[in-house]
């Protein structure tokens, strides 16, 4: 991967962008091949292996009983965590989550939270005391760019296919019984990442492109077309570029949502 550091290669990618071309032959508005395998991990209540080009991310959803937050006694809890393990890239170091993995986890979390994708009110076992905690764990396995989109698609697929056991109150005691239902998922938030090289915008940048980007922004859409999360990850955009990025991302998000719904439908059987 050290070849990426060459200035000549960066200039090459920039010159291509000027001509509306990309290093892997894609069009500026073209996504890489996306493959999602749900139910990859049987120990997890929900899971998905995502392959976006050469990027590979595994997401697992685990459920656990716990206390609700004091200010939301009538709601379940959502916790999202990401690990950029050193297996995935020569650039990743072992150790506690760095700012990139925290940003990744928080942005994925925000899309799910703000779109109210999970109906957290339906995760209450005993109000103010016991609720279901939904853990989304993102495990990056191979980093070839655009980890945010890959992780978010993994997370929503894992949620859509997750099973929740029934918890009942039996003489003051909480019992988990072997009756399973899907998680109450009511929306499918889909982020699309847009990069900027010179004055050109392109979607789904790969790693070589990420190393050259002047700016990067991620925009998450709900099915109704509302935007529910934005993160400018780096660089700067003009107002017009933001508008352009939004319309680019919106179109693509619809297609990707369709793909994910296709993959996850009938997954209950």
């Amino acid at each position: 991967m050290s070849g990426i550091a060459a200035t000549l290669q960066k200039v090459y990618i920039r010159n291509l962008a000027e001509k509306n071309k990309r290093i892997d032959g894609r069009k500026l508005n073209q996504y890489r091949n996306l493959e999602i395998t749900p139910n990859f991990i049987s120990k997890a209540e929900g899971s998905a292996m995502v392959q976006l080009g050469k990027t590979k991310v595994l997401v697992g959803v685990k459920l656990d009983l716990g206390e609700p937050f004091k200010d939301t006694p009538d709601k379940g809890v959502l916790i999202t965590n990401a690990e950029l393990v050193p297996l995935a890239s020569p650039e990743f170091e072992p150790g506690p989550p760095d700012e990139n993995s925290v940003e990744l986890a928080r942005f994925v979390d925000r899309g799910i939270r703000e779109s109210e994708a999970i109906n957290l009110s339906k995760l209450v076992v005993k109000e103010g005391e016991t609720v279901w905690i939904v853990f989304i764990d993102i495990h990056v396995l191979d980093h070839d760019g655009n980890l945010i989109d890959a992780s978010a698609y993994g997370a929503i697929t894992a949620l859509l296919t997750a099973k929740m056991p029934k918890a009942v109150i039996n003489e003051e005691k909480i019992e988990v019984i072997d009756e399973w239902a899907p998680l109450p998922i009511e929306r499918v938030p889909i982020p699309v990442t847009v990069g900027k090289i010179g004055d050109k915008l392109l979607i789904d940048p790969n790693l070589e492109e990420e190393n050259v980007l002047d700016a990067k922004i991620c925009i998450t859409f709900e099915e109704e077309g509302n935007i529910c999360a934005i993160q400018k990850v780096m660089g700067l955009f003009t107002e017009r570029e933001i508008e352009e990025a939004i319309s680019l991302a919106e179109k693509k998000s619809k297609k990707i949502r369709e793909e994910i719904l296709e993959i996850t439908k009938g997954g209950d059987e």
Binding site: K43, V61, F135
Partner: peptide
């Protein structure tokens, strides 16, 4: 060598790290 368990690899979620 670094042996690491993913949080979702066990019956009960394992704390990362």
């Amino acid at each position: 060598c670094r042996y690491n368990m993913a949080a979702f690899s066990t019956s009960e979620r394992k704390k990362p790290g």
